[in-house]
Design a binder for these strands. Sequence first.
DNA 1: ACGCGCATCCCTCCATCGGGTGACTGCCAG
DNA 2: CTGGCAGTCACCCGATGGAGGGATGCGCGT
Lengths: 211, 211
Amino acid sequence: MTLLQHNRPISVLAVDDHPLILEGIAAVFEGMSEMNLVGACDGRQALALYQQHLPDVTLMDLQMPGVSGLEAIELIRQYDPHARIVVLTTYKGDVHALRAIKAGAVGYVLKNMMRTDLLETIRGVHAGHRRIPAEVAMELAEYMSEVSLTPRETEVLKLAAVGKSNKRIGAGLDISEDTVKVHMKNILAKLHAADRTHAVTIAVRRGILQF
Amino acid sequence: MTLLQHNRPISVLAVDDHPLILEGIAAVFEGMSEMNLVGACDGRQALALYQQHLPDVTLMDLQMPGVSGLEAIELIRQYDPHARIVVLTTYKGDVHALRAIKAGAVGYVLKNMMRTDLLETIRGVHAGHRRIPAEVAMELAEYMSEVSLTPRETEVLKLAAVGKSNKRIGAGLDISEDTVKVHMKNILAKLHAADRTHAVTIAVRRGILQF
DNA sequence: ACGCGCATCCCTCCATCGGGTGACTGCCAG
DNA sequence: CTGGCAGTCACCCGATGGAGGGATGCGCGT
C-alpha cells in the first residue's frame, strides 16, 4: 500500500467549522505534491463531502456546533468502515477523546502541535498505523477506567446539578425520594465523590454532564 | 488617519498558541498590500514582540496556556495605552470576553467568522472604532449584570465544589464553620442558587470557577 | 465622623442529606 | 434457569445544610 503514496498524493478532507483553521490547514498543504486537500467543510457537510471525494485521510475537529465531530465520525465510519479519521482538537484533556477513539478515529492531533506533527500523523495513518500521542494516550488511560453512570443516575445527577432536592428530583422523575437517595448513593460511590456537589463537578469535568 | 492606510500597510501582530491558526491568519494576509503580518507568537512572547514591532493592530487569542490572553492584553495596554487589540476567540459565550473588553480590547472576532469579517474588523479598529459583533455584545450585556463574588466567597465556593463540608471549609480557610455558613448564604443569594450544588454549576457556567 | 462593604463569630431550628440494611420487580446473558 | 444488574421502595439515624436572628471589627471613601 505504501507504493500508492508515490503514485498519487494522499487525498485529505478537512472538517472544521472555523474558516481560519481551514485556511491554516490549506496553507500547510499548499505546494505539497505528497498530499492534497480535496475538501474542507463543517460538520453538516462532512459525510456528503466524504462520499463525494472518498479521501484517504479525514481531519476532524471535535468541537463543532450542530453536528458534533463525534457524530460525523460515526456517520462516516458507518458509511465506510475503513475510513481513516484523524481527530484534530484543541485540548488534550478533551472529554470526547475516548469516545472519538471508540468511534473509530485512528489518529489524534492537538492544534498546538507543529505542522510537521500533522503531516507525520497523516502519513502514519495513511500507512495503516494508529497515531495517538503519548500525552493523549495517558489522558485516555485515565478515562478508560471511566465509570459510566446508568441513564437513570445521569438524570438524577442532572437535576441535582440545578439545585433540586432529592424530593423534587423524585417528583420530577416520578419516583419516590427514597429511590432517588439510592441512586445518589450509587453516584457518589461510582465517582468517589464526597457529596452531591463534588459529584457534579466531577461529572462536568468528565463530560458526563454538559454544563 | 485613513490617508495613512494608503501610505503604508496596517501592521498586524498575531498572538495564538496554535500554529495552525497562525498559519491560517498568515494565509489570509498573504499577497495583501493593505495589511501585513509583522509577527506571530504565543502568549509568553506577546509583549516582547509588541515592543519590538509596535503593530497597528494586535490579534489576541484568549484561550492560551501559561500566560493567558487576558494577562497579555493587560501587559500590552500597560506598556502602550493606545494599543489596538482585537480579541480572537472560539466561543461567543466566552466568559473572559467581558474582562477582555474591560482590559482594553477594542475588537472582537469569533474564529468561526469569515476572513472578510476579520479584515473588516482590523480596518475598523485601525480607524479608531470599536468593533464588537452584535451577538457578542448581547452576550456581554448578560454578563454586565454579573454579580461578582468576594475573594473569600470564591474561596469558599471553590472548596465546596470539591466536596468539602462547611466544617472542613472552615478548617481549610482557618475560620469558623459559622462564618463559612454566612459566606455560603451570601453566595446562594448572589447567584440565585437553590443550594451549594446549584451554586457551583452556576459559577462554572459563568467562569467564576474554572473547572 | 459617618456609612458601607467585607469578614468574622455566635445562636436556634428544621429540612435535608448520606450511610446502612433489606427486599421486590423485570430483564438479559450465560 | 439462575445469576447479575438496573430500578424501585421502605425504614432508621446521625451529620450536615440552609434560613432566621443579632453582633463585632476593620478599612475605605466621602
